[in-house]
Write a protein that binds this DNA or RNA. Sequence first.
RNA 1: CGGGCUGUGGCGCAGUUUGGUCAGCGCACCUGCUUUGGGAGCAGGGGGUCGCCGGUUCGAAUCCGGCCAGCCCGACCA
Length: 574
Amino acid sequence: MRWSHAFIPTLRDDPADAEAVSHRLLVRGGFIRQLAAGSYSMLPLGQRVRLKIIDIIRHEMDAIGGQEVVLPTLHPAEIWKKSDRYDLMGDNLFKLEDRKGVELVLGMTEEEIFAILAAELSSYRDLPQIWYQIHTKFRDEPRPKSGLLRVREFTMKDSYTLDVDRSGLDVGFDLHHAAYRRIFARMGLDTTDVQASSGAMGGTESVEFIVRSEAGEDWIVTCTACDYRANVEKAVSALAPVDDGDSEDLERFPTPGLRTIAALAEAHPDVAAPERQIKTLVYFVDGTPTLVLLRGDHELQEQKLLDATGAASVRPAHPEEIRELLGADPGSLGAVGVTGIPVIADVALEGRVNMTTGANEDDWHYRGVDVERDIDVGTWADLRAVSSGEPCVECASPLELWKGIEVGHIFKLGTKFSEAFGAYVQDEDGENRPIIMGSYGIGVERAMAAIVETSHDERGIVWPVTVAPFEVVVTVLRVDDAETMAAAEDLDRRLREAGLEVILDDRPERPGVKFADAELVGIPFRVTVGPRGLERGAVEVTVRRDMSTEEVEVGDVVERVSALVEAARADIIR
RNA sequence: CGGGCUGUGGCGCAGUUUGGUCAGCGCACCUGCUUUGGGAGCAGGGGGUCGCCGGUUCGAAUCCGGCCAGCCCGACCA
């Protein structure tokens, strides 16, 4: 490839609307262009990287026995209604109508269609199967952001395992787990696999692959000492016991003007330390008003509420709604004596006595609350958000909280879709059983952005050689000098003949421009050809990652660069 | 959906407060000459319905109304 003929529109300035590093560098480097919010064009360089990522994924998926298919992205809404995901996914699902008025949707993931195909299987002997595809998914994100990190149209590798029993599912799941580790490692991504919630998808065991980055949107909890690691949506921590004293009688007492946990604690330190208060939140859980109870010093983790209730959506009640329901304003709420409204309580409140909580009348609270005696708790669940420094449940060491980018997610889906679409097989005993599915996703462009987030410097991107748009750039310093140009062209040809991916920068630009572009674009190795070096029969070879430079005799360049590329590959794959 | 901000050549921006002389700057682009190991210099040149629609006015990038789009924070989010 000759740079002079390539479409690589690099920019000297950062685009004004780009914040995230990957967004800035991918736009500046001429990899992508934005069309609309959450909608990006892949320019030639971007597409080269994207294809390399896809090749890695495809290779590893095939290696675990995956069979590639391509399914429609345009689906009749009917099948989404059949699986119940039409409502469950809410506004995140793109919906449209055809000319006949038939409702259609654009796929977000494609369990439905895979289940429909799986319905053609009839015997346990047909299983297991691993099916996958790599194509476009759509999500009507409420807020696309950060370039490729959160978009509305993107490429996903989604795969599905089909098994007759749990142990088969476990095997398929573990195969994916191992394949994902290899996939991300080969891209040069350092991922942490964490326990996660499977969210609206249902399912049980769920593991996310997270790249540590400030640009990420997921909060991850890891233990500073042991192996415990989980998404905050799922993470738990140990709690120091609280001394409540002996159970006492319920007593109403005046608390004029006290509306917050902190204010109440300050005014009544004897009975209302935050950890001895009950925080009462009012939520609408799929439209049903519900009281959510937590310890005074704990925060609600909404995903846990979703998981505990199986609801599609939850939202905090508005102040007016709260007054109508409980007769008091936030700040004086409690669940004591409340009937007719479901109560869900965090497990940290189990067995607690002598607690303090609002009395559902402004300026009044209860003390001496025995949670199990005085409150009609319908459901106990883990609802609390873990905070930094709390003790690990496994080893009691402090937990650490950090931000990351979710690049992959694997989980055990179960039989939800096979039951909905009649995907049953007969087992050895002639018994009809729903196929057990697993579901596994990787966001291709998000992985691309995550690589840039974690591999760049002040000059630009530093692509791992396995995903770089080109492995080598041959930079010609004097295009108008026939000898220099001839030497560069010869090198370009020999490097390509050695199997390397080369771009020849033959633009009539000044050296500084070419160096800057090569570094911005992030090509791992640069061969600099100029008349000065050629007089000595030498060129320079520069390693992008550390910008180290060595002089190499022209005759040795192919061997030297090949060795560097191989070493870089080996270092990534290990 | 709530809050904040922004829309002016390909990119980055000034101009809007105080309507006219405001279509302007830097980069990029084209031509020529010089230059050539870290984003060159000189000279000449091309390119913009000032987001869209409507209104006010003799006159609107500028004032008013409506709409649209994008960014950031929050809510939400496999």
